[in-house]
Every structure is written in C-alpha cells, then in structure tokens.
C-alpha cells in the first residue's frame, strides 16, 4: 500500500494531498493543468521534496518530515513513466529496458530474461536493436513502460503516458499495465486528463483542484458527480 499525506507551498496555492493506494489498485489522478498533479508524482519519486508530511510504501518511509527521512530517488524503486518518455536516444531499445537492472547490478541472465519478457509483453520485440532516438512517439512510450516495469518496481507511476499512442496501442498498453500491476501486486498511480483513460483502466479517481482534493470516487461516477473535466 502507498500512503501519502503531504503539504507543500506552491507558487499560487498550498498543495494538500492525502490518499492511499492499495497493492494491485490503480488510482487515477486528475485535474486541470497546474493543479499540482505532477508535484504529487515528483514528491513520491523524490525529485521534489514536500514541505511537511509523510510518504510510505508498504510500511517503508520514503519521506517523513518529523523523522527527517528523505530516501534518495535512486533507492525508492519506483517505475516512473514521464509524459516525455525520455527513452535514451543513444542506446538500443534492449539497452534502455536493461538500464535499471544493470544499475542495480543484476546478473546478466536475469537481465536478459527480464528484457526479453518485457519486449514481448509490450509487443516491441522487433525493435530490440533499434536506437532509442530512431523510434516514433508511440514506440517510445512502449519502451518507457517496459523499462519502468522491468525493474519490478514497488510502485508504478504514469504521467500522461498514453498521449502518443493511437487508440489500438492505447488499449493494448492499458491492458498490459493493468495485468502487470495485478501480477506484481503493486500500487499504481496514473495522471491523465482524459476521462476515457480513467474509465478504461482506473479503479478509483482522485481529482485535484488548486492543490486540494475536490472529489474522490469510482471512475463510472465521475459524470454523475457533475465533474467537468477537460477531455
């Protein structure tokens, strides 16, 4: 389970978020641009430090302002797919997916079998030897998914991850992500502005508005609750 209860003063308003995501659950974080969604993800990944509060994954503190705990980014074991998929352009798709495993000094056999597995799951086996810089936007997003999942993260976070995918690939990738989250039994946090994505893969929706929680509930209840979101 991921527990988060943080406070951070942003430029225009204070950010106050408090929610939990159970293992195997997908929480969709929604809200207009500048509502603080990315700050939430970056706080969890450690790229941004909250002013006060607590972030815990499976009971282990990532951040605890009272006990002065702030775990380094590289030790948090989070699969994070950024909006800009940032596939390393100078190395091949295979090396991209292996990057996190090699950084953790995993044995070569394990690296190879994991990479092969995720190449297959994301349906990009044919691209294994292609340099990252030569991929299309949609291919990059698939590589970024494979790379994030290959480290078998304790938490998966996706920031607008489906924008470059066509409808068919989007459905395919969403299904693959849902299966992986359920198989690995990890919490998953998805930031998106598309209601369709929330309906397509979310178990629960958390809507942020100017730094505070405006609504929380099941994706299918968004319309009934009168939430007007950009589509």
């Amino acid at each position: 389970m991921l527990e988060i209860d943080i406070h951070k003063q942003l430029r225009d308003f204070p950010l106050n978020v408090n929610f939990q995501v159970k293992s195997g659950e997908i929480l969709v974080l929604m809200g207009e641009n500048g509502s603080g969604k990315s700050t939430v993800l970056n706080s969890i990944s450690g790229l941004v430090t909250p002013d006060t509060g607590l972030i815990r994954l499976q009971g282990t503190s990532f951040f605890n302002s009272e006990k002065a705990v702030d775990k380094p980014v590289e030790d948090r074991n989070i699969g994070y797919v950024l909006q800009n998929p940032s596939v390393f352009p100078h190395i091949t798709v295979r090396e991209n997916i292996a990057y996190g495993l090699k950084a953790r000094h995993q044995p070569k056999d394990l690296v190879d079998s994991r990479v092969n597995h995720w190449l297959r799951v994301m349906d990009i086996e044919g691209l294994a030897r292609v340099k990252g810089g030569k991929l299309s936007g949609g291919q990059k997003q698939k590589v970024a998914f494979a790379r994030a999942l290959a480290i078998e993260p304790g938490l998966l976070m996706l920031d607008e991850p489906f924008t470059a995918l066509d409808t068919e690939s989007r459905q395919y990738v969403q299904e693959a992500v849902r299966t992986s989250v359920s198989d690995l039994q990890i919490p998953c946090l998805v930031v998106t502005h598309r209601v369709a994505d929330a309906l397509g893969m979310g178990d629960r929706v958390y809507i942020l508005h100017q730094g505070f929680n405006r609504w929380e509930g099941r994706p299918s209840d968004i319309a009934a609750a009168g939430m007007h979101l950009p589509t």
């Binding site: 990944s45 450690g46 790229l47 980014v73 590289e74 030790d75 948090r76 074991n77 989070i78 699969g79 994070y80 950024l82 800009n84 940032s86 390393f88 990057y99 996190g100 950084a103 953790r104 970024a144 790379r147 994030a148 480290i151």
Partner: peptide
C-alpha cells in the same frame, strides 16, 4: 540537455 533523461535514470536506480 533535457533533465528528463537524468531524472528517468535516477528513478531507475542509477547513481
């Protein structure tokens, strides 16, 4: 250089 590359590498566990 786009900082996203280095950020991604950090989240993947690289020193």
């Amino acid at each position: 250089l786009d900082p996203a590359y280095e950020h991604t590498a950090r989240t993947l566990g690289a020193s």
